[in-house]
């Protein structure tokens, strides 16, 4: 009797879990499916493409063979003219080539990766120093500072967008691509630091202080104890925090859209995707393939984080 009831219970449980998972995963399946469909297949409501069509991916990743340039005969004659410089010829050719059609996905991905990676590293580093101070040291206005950083979250990004842009213009950063990217980096840092600090601070508090004291007795200064004991013990959390910051920066759209509007070459993926969606290149499979490729690093990050998070590192050090 008991056994049967628990079987029913578990069936219901699994059904509910499955429903939830499907509900969450469905949009992603849809993206994946569409990105793999041939244009003739788009009307087909089935998630499974009739034929696997990888052209969209190949195109985005620059694996398509270069298209033959279709040049009218009159222009061809001009090109054949040896008096024309090579440079001019190329300009002419470009007019007819598919240049405007190419979406420099690799470039955007690199842009995004660099700024996300740098944000992740810097934010994790700064947050660990700040979190240590807040978790371990005593100084005036400590709790004010600890809680004050969370204030960033009370103000929505939209409200800050214009003032921040204005500030970076006033300071002169917005006048160059490098400066703009730097101010964007600063903004990402500010956006990710509070939560990063909060996560690391809470983690540091779980590390017994006597471990640091033991290190000090063993001849480490406080700073050395931080690097040799606290940091290695916090690896899983540092990694998680890095991924958190990385993903935030990877997906950020709002500030990027304002700051990078005029610097086409330095746009990040969310921004570029938006451009792609509204351009004449808005072709379903390509949009979906681009979305899929944008998602991929995030998914990989989460899978790595998951793997690293199992098992507490601080087990076994202290007793009592």
């Amino acid at each position: 009797m008991m056994n049967k009831r628990s079987t029913t219970q578990s069936v219901i449980l699994y059904a509910l879990v499955l429903a939830l998972v499907i509900f969450c995963v469905f949009p992603f399946l849809q993206i994946l499916s569409t990105s793999l469909k041939h244009p003739i297949d788009w009307g087909n409501p089935s998630l499974i493409p009739r034929v696997l069509h990888l052209d969209a991916y190949k195109e985005l990743l620059g694996l398509m063979p270069a298209k033959e340039v279709d040049v009218p005969a009159s222009v061809q004659r001009l090109l054949d003219n040896p008096a024309l410089s090579a440079e001019k010829k190329q300009m002419l050719l470009d007019k007819f080539s598919a240049g405007g059609d190419v979406f420099p996905f690799g470039r955007y991905m690199l842009n995004t990766f660099v700024i996300s990676f740098v944000t992740g590293i810097c934010s994790t580093f700064l947050a660990s120093l700040a979190a240590y101070a807040i978790a371990r040291l005593r100084f005036p206005a400590q709790s004010l500072m600890a809680n004050g950083v969370l204030f960033v979250y009370m103000v929505g990004g939209v409200l800050l967008m214009v003032p921040l842009y204005q500030m970076s213009v006033n300071v002169g950063l917005a006048s160059s691509a490098a400066g703009t990217i730097f101010s964007l980096f600063l903004i990402y840092l500010i956006q990710t630091l509070p939560v990063a600090m909060y996560m690391l601070g809470n983690y540091f508090r779980t590390i017994p202080f006597s471990l640091e004291e033991a290190a000090m007795m063993d001849g480490c200064s406080r700073v050395e104890a931080f690097w040799r004991i606290i940091m290695p013990l916090s690896k899983p959390m540092l990694f998680t925090v890095f991924i958190y910051c990385f993903v935030i920066a990877w997906n950020e759209y709002l500030f990027a859209s304002v700051f990078l509007k005029q610097y086409q070459d330095f746009q990040t993926l969310p921004l570029a995707l938006q451009t792609l969606f509204t351009s004449k290149n808005a072709i379903w499979d390509r949009i979906m393939a681009a979305s899929m490729l944008t998602l991929l690093p995030v998914v990989i990050c989460f899978m790595l984080a998951n793997k690293h998070l199992s098992g507490g590192l601080t087990d076994g050090g202290v007793k009592g």
Binding site: A214, M216, M217, S221, G316, G317, G320
Partner: peptide, 29 residues
Amino acid sequence: PPHKRNIAMVFQNYALYPHMSVRENIVFG
């Protein structure tokens, strides 16, 4: 400061470095 006093201490809760092997714990200092 403590690290300059050349004192060794055994803590009530042992305070072993959890990320190090027994060997590394012993030779750390």
